[in-house]
Computed example of a mutant assay.
Amino acid sequence: MNSVQARRYAVAVIGATGMVGEAVLSLLAERDFPAGKIHALASARSFGEDVDYGGRSLPVGDLAAFDFAGVDLAIFAVPPAVAAEGIPRAVAAGSVAIDLSGQFADEADVPLVVPEANPEALADCGRRGVVASPGIVSALIPVLKPLHAAAGIVRLRLGLCQPVSAAGRGAVEKLARQTAALLSAQPVELAPDEIQAAFNVVPATLAEAAGDGPPPASRLAQDIRRVLGDAQIAIDASVMRVPVFFGYSCQVWVETREPIEPVTVSKLLGQAPGVALLSSSIRPTAVGHASGRDEVFVGTIRRDQAQACGLYLWVVADNLRKGSALNGVQIAEILIKDYI
């Protein structure tokens, strides 16, 4: 066993009581990450709670009082405002911070990384001591990268259906309460500006106005261009909140520079890391296929009938895993292998 394999690392998971933080802890244990010490941190209101880590209970510490000295990796699964305050503290103490919040994704000297596409960008992590992970884009890039490399994507249109869990545990609980009430023929009580989640589809602009909305279309476009390393790709995206607890579903229309046959696309995606290509007779769904899984599932690959170089694909993924936590853990694995 070489020295890299033998070394154990001190890891802090910030936001450990949230759904993404819980997924990070679960993945670290499942993937046998060489952690010598795991610090589970959250806000003061969660202090004293316990979280699960590979069958063990970890006490939750108070982020505000925590000293990051001696922590090798700090994974921030928190809202942007918390990351903005906490990440500089972690970096100043010598930790490398992995930002799952999007707070640092716009910083030019912070690498934005999806390991299946641009792991080499992690060589720049020493500039600021921060690496950004791009959320849902993490689940789209493993599909888009092989197509861009083979035929050159010139235009991309996305219709993203976002589950309520993307807005946190409170949104999941709200959908459950509203669904139970409506199925019991009871009225749903809403605050003056609140939008009903159950049995409803909410466009991004309205969800954003409610204060817990999905990432705007401009964010998706910006992150895709940056990770693929091509600022010229024309991208249009629409995002809607759907009454689903977990799992992203996305209609993807791709126009390529060179014509590419669906059979070739199937071959490329069948070999792509992190992608599960289903047969044409199986249509993947977020609940039936992606829930609890790390792969990005692809089905219904066909020509766009209105564009000679156009393709249509249907993509689903677990939003808590590959759409967030898994990408951060994969980044951590590469950091300890090649850069720390």
Score class of each variant (00 low, 15 high):
35 A>E: 08
37 K>M: 13
38 I>F: 02
39 H>E: 15
39 H>C: 14
42 A>W: 15
46 S>L: 08
46 S>W: 12
46 S>R: 09
47 F>W: 13
48 G>D: 10
50 D>R: 12
50 D>A: 13
51 V>Y: 05
51 V>S: 02
55 G>C: 09
56 R>H: 07
56 R>D: 09
56 R>T: 10
56 R>G: 13
56 R>M: 10
58 L>Y: 01
58 L>W: 00
60 V>H: 07
63 L>G: 08
64 A>P: 13
65 A>K: 12
65 A>Y: 15
66 F>W: 09
66 F>K: 06
66 F>S: 06
68 F>D: 00
69 A>E: 09
72 D>S: 07
73 L>T: 11
75 I>N: 06
75 I>Y: 04
76 F>T: 08
76 F>C: 03
78 V>I: 09
80 P>F: 07
80 P>N: 08
84 A>P: 10
85 E>L: 11
89 R>S: 05
90 A>G: 02
91 V>Y: 00
91 V>M: 00
93 A>V: 01
94 G>D: 02
95 S>H: 01
96 V>H: 00
96 V>Q: 01
97 A>I: 03
98 I>C: 00
100 L>P: 03
100 L>H: 05
103 Q>Y: 11
106 D>R: 13
106 D>L: 12
106 D>G: 08
107 E>T: 06
110 V>I: 02
110 V>H: 01
110 V>F: 05
113 V>P: 07
113 V>T: 11
114 V>L: 04
116 E>G: 12
116 E>C: 08
117 A>F: 11
118 N>T: 14
122 L>G: 07
124 D>A: 15
125 C>W: 12
128 R>Y: 10
130 V>N: 12
132 A>Q: 13
132 A>M: 11
134 P>H: 12
135 G>R: 11
136 I>N: 13
136 I>C: 15
138 S>N: 02
138 S>P: 06
139 A>M: 09
140 L>S: 10
141 I>Q: 01
142 P>A: 01
146 P>Y: 05
146 P>I: 07
151 A>Y: 02
152 G>F: 07
152 G>H: 06
153 I>T: 14
153 I>M: 09
154 V>S: 10
